[in-house]
Design a binder for these strands. Structure first.
Lengths: 119, 119
DNA sequence: ATATTAACTTGCATTATACAAGCCAATTTT
DNA sequence: AAAATTGGCTTGTATAATGCAAGTTAATAT
């Protein structure tokens, strides 16, 4: 790894699982990552997901995901300036985590289905 | 799957990721699963982990993990009755999720290390 | 008799999440 | 030209989750 990623301090411990969960361990963050991996980019697209995230939570998570380098903002129009969100490599590298969750979820929640392909 | 697992209703959506996170989406649950996968079984062992979970949170999570079928209690001594916690197949099947988190964590938190082998 | 251990529970403060409403600039509709 | 809509949020407030310290209970060890 050519260290261009911001190396954060260990919050709770030096365990890689704990470090990951310091960023991802809540009800919503990984669902936004799922949406991004599925190709969603805009605020309204995230809001349209079936889990119905609240607007303040979504804004907060996008801000955190940006400040922690999972995502970057990209202007897609001037007048008015509007941003879309793109996964960085750090974010894209979560795909195996999401894939493992999909596999587990489909096993223990038969009938569950991913909208598109994360799998 | 010989349906001996309790099929819960979809809480937030029929997405397997959302279903998984309904159970696992917080700061602590997956760390307890990590400990269980590493062979820890008892209350004091979980408390001894470097992340320093609070006792009320640990008790709450163990209760939830049991009621949702990730774990079962096993008496390891009478007088006084003491329980230890064992992963069910549903819990053991989270190993690939943890492995993926370890891989990601070791990449983006260089210097992080799992205590023993989840990896 | 006193202290220690294991597995919790309880009380209270702080932080996170949920829900509804409001804001602002620009575009679209009437 | 005025009114409504769209996109991306922010604000206020209620409820729920988390954190921290202390207490409980039954049994064993000193």
């Amino acid at each position: 790894m050519t260290n261009n990623t911001t190396r954060q301090d260990f919050e709770r411990s030096f365990c890689p699982v704990a470090c990951a969960l310091d960023n991802l361990g809540d009800k919503w963050t990984l669902l936004i990552i799922r949406d991004l991996l599925l190709g969603k980019k805009r605020y309204q697209e995230f809001l349209a997901s079936p889990e119905r995230i609240a607007t303040n939570i979504l804004a907060d998570r996008l801000k955190k995901l940006e400040s922690t380098g999972f995502v970057r903002q990209q202007i897609y129009q001037q007048k008015p300036v509007r941003y879309q969100y793109i996964l960085t490599q750090k974010g894209k590298d979560l795909r195996p985590v999401l894939q493992a969750l999909v596999t587990w979820g489909k096993t223990y929640y038969p009938g569950s289905r991913v909208l598109d392909a994360v799998e």
